[in-house]
Design a binder for these strands. Structure first.
Length: 693
RNA sequence: GCUGCCGUAGCUCAGUGGUAGAGCACUCCCUUGGUAAGGGAGAGGUCGACAGUUCAAUCCUGUCCGGCAGCACCA
């Protein structure tokens, strides 16, 4: 195998031809030639030029200016990134990509992953390499090795990586024969690579990229040399990951890293991670006394008074939004397992359900009951109770339903993934004709709710289609997916900050669904709401209504949630607001405190007035310095602090200090309370007030 | 569930093969101070649980429980 290669792996003959041709057809010297030998290249500025067929991006760049060639790391042909030394065989739009081009970032990261792999193999020979793709904020590489890596190894690996980058060897590409490739990797003991070669579709070329002596199977593209990666990279963490993402396969060791074009960008990214850690809801939940978990209840929340206050504010908000359209119901927590057999859950999801039976040895009823993992079967029972007419439809049943699911131990994560949670669930029973309208009505409710909570960023609605594990006929699925696709288009047409996507195979087992993904204050995406169309469950349970023609018909059932899990939604809110809740949600909205004990009586009067006005107010009469009390309530993220001293008591005023702002304003107490009451008005109530006015 | 790491006071964390410490928080005392930490004293721990090794285990070994980071899963 050649150890040092020119940047172009084609035959030397064709190479020199290109070089000559490139010279001949340089900028100022375009000469006609046989059309079959030429390609027309269009440049971003609109200019078009002809080049010999098979010329490379590098040749073109060099023809324009050597310094351009030097700083160009890759090219984009008709918008697709490619190796700069790829021959261009067809007319194309060409963009030369330098390190600062946003598109170069994925190349920097991908190249960095290759360098990581070389470094690891240099340090620990015998380690098998597998795959190393670019991901959202960096890259990873999966290795197979008996000894796991630890973060303590990072310094050594990074040092070796800098060495490899410093050597600045060109990335060169060869296309290998499939069998030869497998033999080479087999000889090297790279069993995983052999499997990867086998997985490449027959018609695709087997591409090998060299960086000096080291090479890897790779789809590419890469930059021109390792030196272009630069110095702004960092290994982040080490973790296990299954080979090919399948839990039946062996577990590999994954090293995560990130890389940027510039050090400032890397620093900014690391800073952002730090910021995200500061608003971790588990940390804030403890600091702000909102909730806790403990060993006896893995995955179930102990809500403290302040956290529960947020929970209640959230439910109160949702109840106001449902009023008039929905009927709120409440279905039992545990039901005989036969009901779950009918629904299909016992068959599909038994492993993830909690079951209960009498704990008494002598109990006469030893039936198995299941804790509800979903509210839908309960709601179908309510629908079935009493004969329904088409005139009753759409019938919308809502429940703040507490459900339990036995989540895998490793899946649990603070409030975000728990074993017992409350869904803001509802099921709409309707006719097929009403289906599209109902979906759109739910869409309005979801979008306006997110906006009320200050999620103003981009929103994604994903349509998930039939999974492998499913019930119902293909005709049912065809129909349901058709309706949903139409609705999706309508959703997109209605709003300008909504993006839509299709998620093939991700639907629920009983029907396709929409998933609503909101973006929080620091740009993270969270899937919350969902609308699921179900042509199966009503039939399975024998639910029907009497249609206008007197015939029995199965209603269509729409499952929908806005927040999804209230617990999780509060977790998201905590991180979104970084614990500084808007006044209408804040557990304690205002604290009254004193400068000296002389103010106690007046402070109590102010407190009483605040509470009469409906505000969640507390008082702090502790014998502490005002500095200390201000600090403490600021750390507790109390939105408003009313300080009263001798002066305020004499003038019936308060000194108002707002969280996040320096200084304070003295104003008449009545005026301060009125302003707070106004600000504490929930956004939906305010909207209604405005509409009424 | 899998891989790796972790579990000491309410919180953040030191520490040791001879049954433990700091800061903050807490309680009491002094201090009445005008907007992000005033001072002093005190109380607080079966060192996650259970086995094993040892004269002796919080420390070593094993199992279990719980957590963290990923992966897998998410009706």
């Amino acid at each position: 195998m050649p150890d040092s290669k020119l940047p172009d792996s084609k035959s030397p003959d064709s190479k020199s031809e290109h070089a000559k041709a490139g010279f001949q057809y340089s900028l100022s010297n375009l000469k006609p030639a046989a059309p079959v030998d030429k390609v027309t290249i269009s440049f971003p500025d609109g200019a078009k030029r002809e080049y010999p067929r098979g010329t490379t991006g590098f040749d073109i760049a060099k023809g324009i200016s050597p310094s351009l060639a030097k700083r160009t790391v890759a090219m984009a042909l008709n918008g697709d990134l490619a190796d700069l030394n790829d021959p261009i065989d067809e007319d194309a739009k060409l963009e030369l990509v330098d390190r600062d081009d946003p598109r170069a970032l994925e190349l920097i990261r991908h190249d960095c992953a290759h360098v990581l792999a070389e470094a690891v193999q240099a340090l620990w020979p015998g380690t098998q390499v597998t795959i190393g793709p670019v991901i959202e904020n960096g890259f990873y590489y999966d290795f197979f090795r008996n000894e796991p890596f630890t973060p303590e190894d990072f310094a050594a690996i990074e040092k070796k990586m800098r060495e490899i980058i410093g050597r600045d060897k060109p990335f060169t590409k060869e296309v290998w024969d499939r069998e030869k490739t497998k033999q080479v990797f087999r000889d090297k003991g790279e069993a995983f690579k052999v499997e990867l070669v086998d997985a490449i579709p027959g018609e695709e070329p087997i591409k090998i990229y060299y960086q000096g002596d080291w090479f890897d199977l790779c789809r590419g593209p890469h930059m021109t040399s390792t030196g272009k990666i630069g110095n702004a990279f960092k290994l982040m963490k080490v973790a296990g990951a299954y080979w090919r993402g399948d839990s039946n396969n062996p577990m590999l060791t994954r090293i995560y890293g990130t890389a940027f074009a510039k050090q400032e960008q890397l620093d900014a990214y690391l800073k952002q991670i730090e910021e995200a850690e500061k608003r971790d809801h588990r940390k804030l939940g403890r600091e702000l006394d909102l909730f806790h978990f403990q060993e006896e209840g893995p995955g179930v929340v102990f809500w403290h008074a302040k956290g529960w206050s947020i929970f209640q504010a959230l439910i109160a908000y949702m109840r106001r939004r449902l009023a008039g359209d929905y009927d709120e119901v409440n279905a039992p927590q545990i039901l005989d397992k036969s009901l779950w057999e009918t629904s299909g859950h016992w068959g599909w999801y038994r492993e993830n359900m909690f079951a209960a039976q009498s704990a008494g040895d002598e109990a006469e009823d030893k039936r198995w009951f299941a804790l509800k993992p979903m509210n839908c079967p309960g709601h179908v029972q309510i629908f079935k109770h009493g004969l329904k007419s088409y005139r009753d439809l759409p019938l919308r049943l809502a429940e703040f339903g507490v459900v339990h699911r036995y989540e895998a131990s490793g899946a649990m994560h603070g409030l975000m993934r728990v074993r017992g949670f409350t869904q803001d669930d509802a099921h709409v029973f309707c006719t097929e004709d009403q289906l599209a309208d109902e979906c759109l009505k739910i869409n309005d409710l979801i979008l306006s709710t997110y906006s009320d909570f200050g999620f103003e960023g981009e929103l994604t609605v994903k349509l998930s289609t039939r999974p492998d594990k499913r019930v119902g006929t293909d005709e049912m699925w065809d129909h349901a997916e058709r309706v949903m696709a139409t609705v999706l288009n309508e959703i997109k047409a209605q709003s300008n900050h909504v993006r839509t996507e299709i998620n093939p195979g991700e639907g629920a087992f009983y029907g396709p669904k929409f998933e609503y993904v909101l973006r929080d204050a620091i740009g993270r995406d969270w899937q919350c709401g969902t609308t699921q169309v179900d042509f199966n469950l009503p039939e399975r349970f024998g639910a029907f209504y009497i249609d206008a023609d007197g015939a029995k018909k199965a209603p269509v059932m729409v499952h929908r949630a806005i927040c999804g899990s209230m617990e999780r939604f509060i977790g998201i809110l905590i991180e979104h607001y970084a614990g500084s809740f808007p006044l209408w949600l804040a557990p304690t909205q205002v604290v009254v405190t004193t400068i000296t004990s002389e103010g106690d009586e007046y402070a109590k009067q102010v407190l009483a007035a605040l509470r009469r006005a409906g505000l969640r107010a507390e008082i702090d009469l502790r014998n502490e310095k005002i500095n200390y009390k201000v600090r403490e309530h600021s750390l507790q993220k109390i939105p408003a602090l009313l300080v009263v001293g001798k002066k305020e008591a004499e003038t019936h005023s308060v000194s108002v200090r707002r969280l996040g702002r320096d200084g304070q304003t003295v104003m008449p107490t009545a005026e301060a309370i009125a302003a707070l009451v106004d600000e504490a008005t929930p956004p939906d109530v305010r909207r209604r007030q405005r509409e009424a006015a």
